[in-house]
């Protein structure tokens, strides 16, 4: 019953809210518009935009040390999460049966375990630092904590259901997945999409000035 609901109607509703919401948010950025830059560029903006999208995956050499924590914890979390989302065996199965119609080879159990450990350690460290560091305390909002908290609960319930022994645990995980999907477009989780635009805008502007940003 519970499982049918969270994998049925609620899942479809959540997926719809997610897709429509994300599209709406991206459209809102496009709608805000951008004035044409009339200055004479040194180099073209578009290649600079693409370059910066990739270049910002690592901090500048000079900034490696100040960014070390965020980089290590951030990558531990993000890479771990991607492996979990895309390569956990039950996820591949779900994607194959319910979303795409085809699947791929899931990660072996030890990879899953490693990914989960990295993801949990990274997320916990980032979240705790948000609560402890004076700078982060000053700039963090409720949204930051809800987004982080929901992600943590989704990962946590996912691991509880890992053994696939009880439908209830699977349903619990799915419930929080649905909630996360619904919350996503209204929150800062949107950075998962908009970071490309932000880096692109900055990369283009700076490339026009002849600076690789």
């Amino acid at each position: 019953m519970f499982l049918d609901f969270v994998e049925g109607p609620l899942w479809y509703a959540a997926a719809a809210v997610f897709l429509v919401g994300v599209a709406w948010r991206l459209a809102a950025i496009a709608r805000a518009g951008l004035k044409e830059d009339l200055s004479v560029p040194r180099t073209a903006g578009a290649p600079g935009a693409v370059a910066t999208v990739f270049r910002r995956f690592l901090p500048h050499r000079e900034f490696m040390r100040p960014a070390a924590f965020q980089m290590v914890a951030g990558y531990a979390f993000h890479i771990g999460l991607f492996v979990l989302v895309l390569f956990a065996a039950p996820h591949v199965e779900f994607i194959e049966q319910r979303i795409l119609g085809f699947g791929w080879t899931p990660a072996p159990h030890w990879v899953f375990l490693l990914a989960a450990n990295f993801a949990f350690a990274g997320l916990l460290l980032l979240w705790l630092r948000r609560m402890l560091d004076p700078v982060l305390r000053r700039i963090s909002t409720l949204d930051d904590h809800i987004g982080t908290g929901l992600t943590f609960v989704v990962m946590f319930t996912g691991c509880m259901a890992l053994f696939e022994s009880h439908d209830f645990l699977r349903a619990l995980h799915m419930l929080f997945v649905d909630l996360l999907l619904i919350y996503f477009p209204f929150s800062r989780l949107m950075h998962a999409f908009t970071f490309i635009l932000s880096r692109g805008f900055t990369g283009a502007t700076m490339a026009r000035k002849g600076v690789s940003a």
Partner: peptide
């Protein structure tokens, strides 16, 4: 117990 076992082993 099933949930706790998974969490315990995973964490």
């Amino acid at each position: 117990a099933a949930a706790c076992k998974e969490i315990h082993n995973l964490f």
